[in-house]
Design a protein around this nucleic acid. Structure first.
Lengths: 110, 110
DNA sequence: TAGTAATTTCGATAAAACCAGAAGTATGGA
DNA sequence: TCCATACTTCTGGTTTTATCGAAATTACTA
């Protein structure tokens, strides 16, 4: 994966998390852990119409941050921790909060 | 800061980074380190019209991810590492990539 | 094979984001 | 004071996004 693909992917993931409802959705899934939550469970927690919720789920799924698995008539949603890890890695990359940036400057281009 | 303010802040920061141009902008600033970059320098790097760039800068500033300091007629932009650190902290919070989520489940609400 | 529960897709609307040229503002220098 | 540079704000038009009711779909269950 080249550098601009990474950037595009990261941007799409950030965008998908950059909506308060979707961020709540995602965090509910993180809290739910490995069991995940059915769409209906999410709907109760978030208190929004089913169609709206479905759209938000789709966005997070398209961004790769959430997965779904069918179990009978219900769809279980789970946070994709791996995707979040690499997103965090991407954000933390070259981020030098301690001010020790001098020796690292101009080491990459995008 | 209460929990829903935190979520709103995080969402606005994620949204501001969730645009490919702004993400490139932000990363250019990270790479520039403590010296930062003037708006004009960013414009050269990103190759976009000044007014468009100005809008993107404003979004990142409003979200608290970028700061500006005037130096004569030029405005120096810098990445706000502290804000990024806490955003990453917020994202990593309760994220249990290793699957060790069992004992942590349902410890928070938002 | 109806019937039902769970969820998605469709369709329509309002709100917001994005973009860029033109005009305006701030600052330092001649 | 006048000019040039570096940006920002204004203005407008186009494209996305967010929302949600209604209709359709999927998969159990009787």
């Amino acid at each position: 994966m080249n550098i601009s693909m990474k950037l595009e992917l990261a941007a799409s993931q950030l965008e998908s998390l950059g909506n308060p409802t979707r961020l709540r959705l995602y965090r509910a899934l993180v809290r739910a852990g490995v069991d995940g939550l059915p769409v209906g469970g999410l709907q109760q927690k978030l208190n929004i119409p089913a169609s709206t919720l479905s759209h938000h789920c789709r966005k997070l799924i398209d961004a790769g941050l959430v997965t779904q698995e069918r179990n009978g008539t219900t769809l279980i949603c789970r946070a994709n921790y791996k995707a979040m890890s690499s997103l965090i890695g991407y954000l933390a990359d070259e981020c030098c909060a301690d001010g020790a940036c001098e020796e690292r400057r101009e080491t990459a281009e995008a």
